[in-house]
Simulated assay, not measured.
Amino acid sequence: MGPQLVSKGEFAAMINVSPGRVSQFIAAGQISAAAMVGSGQRAKIDVERAKADLRLTLDVSQRLGNGASTNIDPGLSGAAPISAPNVYDPEPILGIDHKIKQQKFEQLQRANRNAAVAEARDAGQLTDAQAAKAEMIKIAASMLDVFDGGINDMAMAVAAKFELPQRDVKHLMRTVFRDVRERAAKVARERGAEMPDLASTTIETEETDQTAVT
Score class of each variant (00 low, 15 high):
M143Y: 12
D46C: 10
G38C: 05
A157P: 07
K138I: 13
S77V: 06
I93L: 09
V87S: 04
Y88Q: 08
A120L: 13
R178A: 15
E106Y: 08
I93C: 02
A80Q: 05
I139C: 08
D97R: 12
E119I: 15
P165G: 04
A160Y: 00
F147Q: 13
S83R: 11
M36R: 04
D73I: 03
K51D: 01
I72H: 05
V117Y: 05
D128F: 00
A111S: 10
R113S: 14
F177A: 08
M173R: 13
L94D: 14
Q62S: 11
L56A: 11
A80C: 00
P165D: 04
D168H: 00
M156T: 07
A35G: 04
K170R: 12
A84K: 08
D168C: 00
A140H: 09
I96H: 12
A43S: 12
Y88T: 01
A50F: 02
V117H: 02
P74D: 03
G124Y: 05
D168R: 01
A33H: 06
R63I: 01
K161R: 01
Q107H: 06
G150K: 15
A34Q: 10
I82A: 03
A131K: 08
L54P: 10
Q166R: 07
P85V: 13
M36V: 14
A160L: 04
R42Y: 02
N114F: 04
G38R: 00
N114Y: 05
P165A: 07
A116P: 14
